[in-house]
Design a protein around this nucleic acid. Structure first.
Length: 562
RNA sequence: UGGGGAGUGGCCAAGUGGUAAGGCACUGGCCUUUGGAGCCAGGUACCGAAGGUUCGAAUCCUUCCUCCCCAGCCA
């Protein structure tokens, strides 16, 4: 079960265009064969599975070329960032299985340097303090088709700008009173070059620098230089920053410092979920889910609680390729990688979610036998266990039909099935309550079939899971379904929420061996799906989350028949 | 619309002038003490479109179409 943190376990990682670029650099000697990358999250929310694509790409690129990957928090906006998120992000990346060495980097560590570089730009005559309001700046910026116009404050003297910027820093201005802007080109067809804002005034305490600063660098001003300071060679980011690259290059050129190569790739999107921190935060804040780690959330903490493994998530990242075209990966792909991992590693257990009682009428009253069960048919070393068998059992209600349709192989009057690892049984009748609801299924068993095989070689078409009624323990089981009913929820995502994304089964039965289940362990409930213990569990009341169902051929047959 | 990107089977994605990998999904079959897993097989992909160059183009040229990103003192 610990193999999940072994990154080298049989992973096939196809090459990609990013590595082609690195190969070219290595061939030309552009960075002297060095490869340094970084994963730069903003601590304004929890990481989701989309981030794992960027995490994986950055760390794997560094590993592939014998370089290193820094974890750096882009903490330039104290209005939105919190220590809670920093801690969560660290935990999530560790859990995913990546290692960034002993140092954690923060953009806030570069505030002083960034400030000095801003002064340098002012002295070079390419930055100025602007007293236009936010609204005015927007108006002056022009539109996509019309050029902007210069701010009336654009041509202040170097001395005046220096003095004003100093006053900004020392707190002489209120929030929003003025900003520091780069003096580039208000008519540029690339809007990012129309005198972008470098610093804004924010009288706000920062999680790490406290009240040391009241001016904070904008992302665009901080990001490229942070990479430069760390000697990053390949600055891998998502597509939307492509148009910002000329701006970063402009800054680096003006400052005359190390130029990383920015490479943009398409972020990972999945069907039936949303991958935007803003939307996820809204789901949390408005109570549509139980929190950032709600098992229905695509957050790493949510997936972890749901029972997803780091291996499955890494596999998805490796197998969906790195490209520049924006696409949406079907959620089925993720379900495949988690099933593949869990099939190999999860211990098999018996659980009956929706029980119906079965009485073996010819089985001796009071007799209890022990049958041996295999813990994992995919892994002999997982061994076997013993389970009690008695006259009264529970089976899954849906495994019995009084009037079965075609191709229903399970239990029905007169039909013979196998109780896994136990006996063949034949249904001889049912007991119903006043409402006509079946409360008991009566069967006879064949003592010759102990263990599940008939000496005469006769076959059965179905094998059912079961529990000895007097020995069964109770548990709550939470079934999760996709959070949205639309493959691509879009802007109107709240209206696409799936009302049945969570089903709580309060009274299920589990086999005695499951009482010892621990957090972080993965189980297959035979014939049902994969489950794990939820942290909400208490001593007297275990709670299991369904990670994913088993592939269900019968469900498909039913759909076709309907 | 100005600028920046992208278009290869249902979904991802290889391919970079020589006649379309692979994965997921799907469909058959085999096997099976999980209708799980596994194994085998399958889909005429006219490579966004139209022209052109070439003995030969998904790959080169031209034009066009569609989709995504940018007008935060967010990142």
């Amino acid at each position: 079960m610990n193999a999940q943190n072994n990154l080298t376990e049989n992973e096939t990682r196809p090459s990609n265009f990013v590595w082609d670029i690195v190969d070219e650099h290595n061939a030309s000697g552009r960075f002297g064969g060095q490869v340094i990358t970084r994963f730069p999250p903003e601590p304004n929310g929890y990481l989701h599975i989309g981030h794992s694509k960027a995490i994986s790409l950055n760390f794997e690129t560094a590993r592939r070329y014998g370089g290193k990957c820094n974890l750096r928090f882009d903490d330039t906006n104290p209005a939105k960032e919190e220590q809670e998120y920093i801690d969560g992000i660290i935990e999530d990346i560790r859990w995913l299985g990546f290692d960034w060495g002993d140092k954690i980097y923060y953009a806030s560590d570069y505030f002083r340097q960034l400030y000095e570089w801003a002064v340098q730009l002012i002295k070079q005559g390419v930055a100025y303090v602007d007293h236009l309001s936010a609204d005015e700046i927007r108006e002056y910026r022009g539109t996509l088709t019309e050029p902007g116009k210069n701010s009336p404050y654009r041509d202040r003297s170097v001395e005046e700008n220096l003095a004003l910027f100093e006053k900004m820093k020392s707190g002489d201005f209120k929030d929003g009173e003025c900003v520091l802007r780069a003096k580039i080109d208000m008519a540029s067809p690339n809007i990012n070059l129309r005198d972008p804002v470098l610093y804004r005034i924010l009288h706000e305490a920062h999680p790490r620098t406290g009240n040391q600063w009241c001016i904070y660098p904008m992302y665009d001003w901080a990001h490229g230089q942070s990479d430069s300071i760390e000697g990053v060679t390949h600055s891998i980011c998502t597509l939307e920053f492509e148009a910002h690259r000329p701006l970063y290059d402009w800054f680096l050129d003006q400052l005359g410092i190390h130029h990383p190569q920015q490479i943009e790739f398409a972020r990972l999107n999945l069907t039936y979920t949303v991958m935007s921190k803003r939307m996820l935060k809204q789901l949390v804040d408005e109570g549509h889910v139980g929190g950032w780690n709600d098992p229905r959330m695509p957050t790493l903490s949510g997936l972890r609680r749901r029972g997803y493994t780091p291996k499955a998530i890494r596999d998805l990242c490796d197998r969906t390729g790195v490209a520049k075209s924006n696409g949406v990966v079907e959620i089925e792909h993720l379900e495949h990688t988690i099933r593949q991992d869990l099939n190999r590693h999860a211990l098999r257990r018996m659980a009956v979610l929706d029980p119906i009682k079965v009485v073996i009428v010819n089985y001796p009253k009071g007799l209890v036998e022990e049958v041996e069960m295999i813990n994992n048919p995919e892994d002999e070393s997982a061994g076997t266990r013993k389970a009690p068998f008695s006259r009264e059992l529970y089976i899954e209600r849906e495994d019995f039909m009084e009037d079965p349709p075609r191709k229903f192989f399970r239990l029905s009057p007169g039909s013979e099935v196998r109780l896994r690892y136990a006996y063949f049984i034949i249904c001889t009748g049912v007991i119903k309550d006043a409402d006509g609801k079946i409360v008991e299924v009566h069967c006879t068993y064949d003592p010759e079939t102990r263990g599940g095989n008939a000496p005469d070689g006769r076959k059965v078409k179905a094998t059912l899971h079961w529990l000895s009624a007097p020995h069964a323990r109770t548990a709550e089981v939470r079934l999760y379904d996709r959070l949205f009913v639309e493959p691509e929820p879009g802007k109107d995502f709240l209206n696409a929420l799936n009302p049945d994304s969570l089903t709580v089964l309060g009274h299920c039965y589990i086999e005695p061996a499951l009482i010892d289940a621990g957090l972080g362990e993965h189980y297959q409930f035979e014939r049902i799906g994969y489950f794990c213990l939820d942290p909400d569990s208490t001593d007297g009341k275990p709670i299991f989350n369904r990670t994913v169902t088993l592939r269900d051929t019968w469900a498909k047959i039913q759909q076709k028949q309907a």
